[in-house]
């Protein structure tokens, strides 16, 4: 599904990633953990195609395709979805309209016919109910005036409508209370399937109580310094990161 090899990236001459290797098979959930500034969000952004980074070495291959050669919208068309750590407020652009443009943008990329208004609204209705997104948020400008929790729910709602093949969640759990956390986790778990994968970037192991990962990776100083089963997250919770990061520095 996703193969990241020896990925080096920098911002304005400053190295952020220094040789990341990661392989995610179909149906797997991989958690990326690590201290602040370790490059977790950069990795998520690079998968989604955010501009502003210079890739100095390495590759990201997705279903056999060179992901780095694709524009962000093409990556979305291929089935990549990034749930943002800080969802962007877009004044004047209606949430539902944006989502319809997204659905049809992806369909167009795939050479599929556009979704009609009625079908789309039914889809939206069923998904909002599942995520517990308030109806009035649908017709507000994208993320504008949303609380932190509402923004994160909106991300998961969008993901459930777009049904990606690879979902990348960038600290979607940060700032959420336990109820919202469960909603987010439920949203992800409902989408889990043998041909869909997730990369879950998180600072805390708490989320992993609800989204049970197949593998946990610790990113420190731009490299994955430890990979292990789910229990690694519990160990990190107990011991912190210092015992792992001291070596990497």
């Amino acid at each position: 599904m996703l193969r990241i090899e020896n990925l080096h990236a920098e911002v304005a001459g400053k190295p952020i990633l220094r040789g990341v290797n990661l392989t995610v098979m179909p149906g797997e959930v991989h958690a990326i953990m690590g201290p602040n500034g370790s490059g977790k969000s950069t990795l998520a952004y690079l998968i989604a195609g955010r501009p502003g980074y210079t890739i100095t070495a390495g590759s990201i291959t997705y279903n056999g395709k060179d992901l780095l050669a694709l524009a962000p919208e093409e990556r979305a068309g291929e089935g990549v979805f990034l749930a943002f750590q800080y969802p962007v407020e877009i004044p004047g652009v209606n949430n539902v309209y944006m989502l319809k443009a997204a659905v049809n943008g992806i369909r167009k990329y795939r050479g599929e016919p556009e979704m009609g208004a009625v079908e789309f609204l039914n889809l939206v209705k069923s998904k909002t109910k599942a995520i517990g997104l308030k109806d009035d948020l649908l017709n507000r400008p994208v993320n504008q005036g949303f609380s932190g929790g509402e923004k994160k729910r909106n991300e998961i709602f969008q993901m459930s409508v777009l049904e990606p093949r690879l979902g990348v969640l960038d600290e979607t759990d940060s700032g959420l209370d336990i109820d919202a956390l469960k909603v987010v986790a439920d949203g992800v778990n409902r989408l889990r399937s043998p041909d869909r994968s997730f990369v879950v970037v998180t600072h805390y192991q708490r989320l992993l109580d609800y989204i049970v990962p197949d593998q946990v990776h610790v990113l420190a100083h731009g490299r994955i310094v430890r990979s292990g089963p789910r229990e690694l997250a519990l160990e990190l919770e107990a011991r912190g990161y210092d015992w792992l990061t001291a070596d990497a520095a």
Partner: peptide, 28 residues
């Protein structure tokens, strides 16, 4: 706003449409 454009593109909206959406959003 480049962040807004990237957000829309990451959702599958082509760059030109993302620019048009945010432009119209400016006066909406």
């Amino acid at each position: 706003d480049e962040d807004a454009l990237f957000y829309l593109q990451a959702r599958g909206i082509p760059r030109a449409d993302a620019e048009a959406l945010t432009t119209f959003g400016f006066v909406h």
